[in-house]
């Protein structure tokens, strides 16, 4: 009944004995974690959908030559991985209470994120110019991989498109955090970091599944 009279020890009680803060995280951070779990399921469903279509097709295009396509997407991967490192530096600067350094690291993170988006859009434009669309393959591809599923484009643009949308939203989110960093608490900065690392994590599955499994023989 009377929680107010309880001591701080009871509010953050032992591992499984409840209390007001059983996870010892604020409600926003818990909320972000739950969002990340549900968003992972969205991406898992898309990747499983891609695997389903690929496994049930007679043939599947493997259109990415090692050079330049794979090297290009490896550079994109490096951008995202490095942005995760700068983000984690930002969060640890924020843990020290160094707002200026936090802002600097977050802006660097945004820069890496934007580089990723620009590189990705260049790649998209290249594929679209080749004649790839969500529901049809370029004519040369149909000749090269007879009976290939026309859904290649749907899976490619769907998965990488949703991921790119997450990167773009993340960049906006981080820009807001960087702008208001003096007003925000440390935990809020940390939460934005959680989101950004999640975007990076998704790419760790998209990159091998979409690109490395479709390298031109």
């Amino acid at each position: 009944m009377s929680t107010e009279a309880a001591s701080a020890d009871q509010l953050i009680a032992n591992e499984w004995s409840g209390g007001t803060l059983p996870y010892r995280v604020g409600h926003r951070k818990l909320g972000m974690w739950l969002f990340i779990v549900s968003d992972s399921l969205t991406f898992s469903a898309l990747l499983v959908g891609y695997a389903y279509v690929r496994a049930s097709s007679d043939n599947w295009p493997t259109p990415f030559p090692f050079s330049p396509s794979i090297i290009f997407s490896t550079v994109m991967t490096l951008c995202l991985l490095s942005s995760s490192l700068t983000m984690v530096m930002g969060v640890s600067a924020s843990a020290r209470g160094d707002k200026k350094a936090t802002r600097k690291w977050i802006l660097l993170t945004i820069l890496f994120g934007l580089t990723f988006i620009v590189l990705h859009l260049i790649e998209w434009r290249h594929l679209i110019n080749e004649g790839l669309s969500p529901f049809s393959l370029p004519k040369e591809w149909v000749k090269e991989w007879p009976g290939a599923s026309p859904l290649f484009g749907a899976t490619f643009f769907g998965i990488t498109g949703l991921h790119m949308f997450h990167v773009a939203t993340g960049a906006i989110y981080l820009a807001v955090v960087a702008a208001r960093v003096n007003k925000l608490k440390h935990e809020d900065v940390e939460i934005s970091g959680l989101y950004w690392h999640f975007v990076d994590l998704v790419w760790m599955f998209v990159f091998p599944m979409i690109y490395l499994l479709s390298i031109k023989a």
Binding site: A6, A8, T20, L21, A95
Partner: peptide, 20 residues
């Protein structure tokens, strides 16, 4: 008391940082 508990939450993050 509640603020004390929240302070503990934020405090708990000190060891979060690990090291660079």
């Amino acid at each position: 008391v509640k603020e004390m508990a929240m302070a503990e939450v934020e405090h708990g993050d000190e060891h979060f940082a690990g090291s660079n």
